[in-house]
Design a protein around this nucleic acid. Structure first.
Lengths: 251, 251
DNA sequence: GATTTTACTAAACACCGTTCACTAAACAGT
DNA sequence: ACTGTTTAGTGAACGGTGTTTAGTAAAATC
C-alpha cells in the first residue's frame, strides 16, 4: 500500500477541488448548506466507523476499500466523494483515535520533575502502543507515503499534529533534564537523547508487535519489558543505578 | 503484501509438487539432469539478482512480479517455475544476503568477555541495519505472513536460521552476563533482558529507517545514537555509569 | 419553477499476484 | 535413432486491488 506505484498518476495538474477537500470547513452560510454538511459528516462517520471495525479486526493491509464500502452500506466509488483516497480515510480515522493519546500526554506534561515526566511519557506511550497495536503500526512502523507531497502541503501530511507534539513533548522534557543537569555530561544533545529514549520504548514494543507470535523467541510480557527498558535506559542516562524498588510504576 | 487475502486460496489440498520445491537438491543422477540443474540455478540467480536490484532501489512494496520478470528477461509466469510465490523469491534472496550478517555474528561470538561481546553484537547489528535498510525492513520490521503455515512446516518459515541464530546469540550472551554477575540483580531473566537490548538498537534504527526523512524530527546520525543507546542501556544493566571514554568503539 | 450543485451508483481502467493450457526443447529408455 | 516423458517458458486469463468517470436523482439556490 505504502509506496506502490499509483495506477494512473494525476498528470501534475492540481487535482480538481472535490467535496472531500472542503470537508473540514463548516461555513454554514445558508440553512440548506448546514443540513448538507451535517448529513455529510454523518456519512463520513459511518464510513470511518466501519473502517475502524475492520482495521482493528483484520489489520490495515487486509482491508480493501470495497470491504469498507460494503460494511458502511455504500458503493466503493462513494468513498471517494468523502475521502481523496484510502490513505486519507485512514488518516482521518487516526486523527480521531489519537486524540486520547494527546490528552494523556498533556496530562503527563504537568509533572514538574522532568525525569519523572519523561518516564511517565514513556509509560503512556507503551500502554497506548500495546492497547492499539494496529494504530501504532500504521503511525510509527510504516513509512508515510508521498513524502514529497506531504512536505509541500503540510495539511496533507500523514503525521498531522499528534505525533509531532508527542515527539516535541519528549524532546522538550529531555532538554529540561539536561538543563537541570539531571543527566550525565556526556548526554548533552537533547535531540539525540530524545531519539534514544523514543527508540528504546519503540523498539521493545514494535519487536513484540511484529514478532510476538513467532515461535523462535519466547517473548515476555511486553509491558513489563518495555517499562523495565526505559527505566534501565534512564538509569544509564542519570548515572544512578537501578535499585529493587527505586522506580515508580505507571501513575 | 503481508496479510493480504490471497486471491484464490489453495483448497486445503497439499500443493502439487512443482519444480520449485526440489530446487535445493542437487541429485545429479544423470549427466543430463546435472546440466538441467545448473541451467536452472543460473535462471534462479538471474531472477534473484534482478529482484535485488529493484528492491534495493525502490523498496519491496513498489516492485511487482511483472517488474522482476521484465528485468530478468522473462514472462511473469516463468518466475513461478522457480519460486512458489513472491514471498519465497524474497526469502531466497534474503538467505543469500544475510549470510554476511551471520558470519559477522559468529566472529563476535568468539569474544570472551560477555559484556563486550554483547556490545559488539549490537554494534554489528546496527551497522548491518544501516547498510541494508531494505533488507532490514523486511527481516525485522514486517510481520512474517502465513504464520500458521510457517509454524507447521518449519522450512517454509520466513525466518530460516539466520535471525534465530542472531537472537539466540544475543540471549546466550545475556545469559552469560547474568551467570557472571555482571548485571545488577534486578536483571535476572535472560529472555527479558535480551529483548530489551534487541529492542534498544532495533528501536533507534527502525525509527530512523521509517521516519528519518520526516521534517518534524531532526534525526541525528543513527549510527551514533544507536551505539550511544546500547552503551547507555548496558550502563544501566551493569550499574556502572558511563564515562567520557569508558566505552570502546566498534572493533 | 428553472438552474445549479452534489451525493451516490454502475461500470470501467490499469494494475496486482497467481494459475493454466500449451509449446518446444531437452532428457531417458529402448 | 526412435520413441515417450519431463519441464522451462509463454500468453492469456482469473479474481483481486485502488481509483476514475459518465450518468442520475435529489437537494439547494436563484
Amino acid at each position: 500500500m505504502s509506496a506502490r506505484k499509483s495506477p494512473s498518476p494525476p498528470p501534475a495538474s492540481p487535482r480538481p477541488r472535490t467535496a472531500a477537500d472542503s470537508r473540514g470547513h463548516t461555513d454554514a452560510t445558508t440553512p440548506g448548506a448546514a443540513r448538507r454538511e451535517a448529513e455529510n459528516a454523518k456519512a463520513r462517520a459511518k464510513i470511518i466507523n466501519a473502517a475502524r471495525k475492520l482495521f482493528v479486526k483484520r489489520g490495515f493491509e487486509a482491508v480493501s476499500m470495497r470491504d469498507i464500502a460494503k460494511a458502511a452500506g455504500y458503493t466503493p466509488g462513494a468513498l471517494y466523494v468523502h475521502f481523496a483516497d484510502k490513505l486519507q480515510l485512514i488518516h482521518a480515522m487516526m486523527q480521531q483515535d489519537f486524540r486520547a493519546f494527546d490528552d494523556a500526554t498533556t496530562n503527563v506534561m504537568q509533572i514538574a520533575d522532568p525525569v519523572e515526566r519523561l518516564r511517565q511519557l514513556a509509560y503512556g506511550y507503551v500502554r497506548f502502543a500495546l492497547a492499539h497495536p494496529h494504530h501504532y503500526r500504521l503511525m510509527f512502523m510504516t513509512e508515510p507515503p508521498d513524502f514529497a507531497v506531504a512536505n509541500e502541503r503540510d495539511d496533507n501530511c500523514m503525521f498531522a499534529d499528534s505525533d509531532r507534539e508527542g515527539y516535541n513533548a519528549c524532546r522538550h522534557t529531555v532538554a529540561d533534564c539536561i538543563a537541570q543537569k539531571r543527566f550525565l555530561p556526556r548526554f548533552n544533545d537533547a535531540e539525540t537523547v530524545a531519539q534514544m529514549c523514543w527508540g528504546c520504548v519503540h523498539g521493545v514494543v514494535s519487536l513484540y508487535i511484529t514478532h510476538g507470535k513467532m515461535p523462535w523467541a519466547r517473548f515476555t510480557d511486553p509491558l513489563h519489558s518495555a517499562l523495565l527498558a526505559i527505566d534501565t535506559h534512564m538509569s544509564g542516562l542519570t548515572g544512578t543505578p537501578i535499585g529493587e524498588s527505586t522506580t515508580g510504576g505507571p501513575r
